[in-house]
């Protein structure tokens, strides 16, 4: 998985965090970014409490945090949290 996220187009940096919140590996712009890891883990803990939906059953498979020119994409696999920071260049809509 760690090798796969390195190959994502426009990747700027990656973080792999274990279930205790400790950074296992970090690359690129996210190298040694303990602060980003802490924020991501806080967001995951908040969203996993099951109170965001009325039935409380919703299990999220992906979380994105989209800024103007880049985005963080967070997903879970094998009890690890994978964070990818990648460039974001939205296409202008085609006007007919």
């Amino acid at each position: 998985m760690a090798q796969i996220i390195e190959k994502i187009p426009d990747i700027l940096g990656t973080l792999v965090i274990n279930e205790d919140g400790a950074v296992i590996s970090s690359t690129g712009e996210l190298q040694n970014e303990e602060h980003a890891a802490k924020s991501v883990m806080s967001m995951l803990q908040a969203s996993s409490r099951g109170q965001l939906t009325s039935d409380g059953s919703q299990q999220f498979k992906r979380m994105s945090v989209v800024f103007d020119t880049f985005m963080y994409v967070v997903t879970l696999s094998n009890k690890r949290v994978y964070v990818a920071k990648r460039g974001y260049n939205p296409q202008e809509p085609v006007l007919a």
């Binding site: 967001m43 299990q59 945090v65 989209v66």
Partner: peptide
Amino acid sequence: PIVCLESD
């Protein structure tokens, strides 16, 4: 930022 939480 915009936060997007995706589920099935």
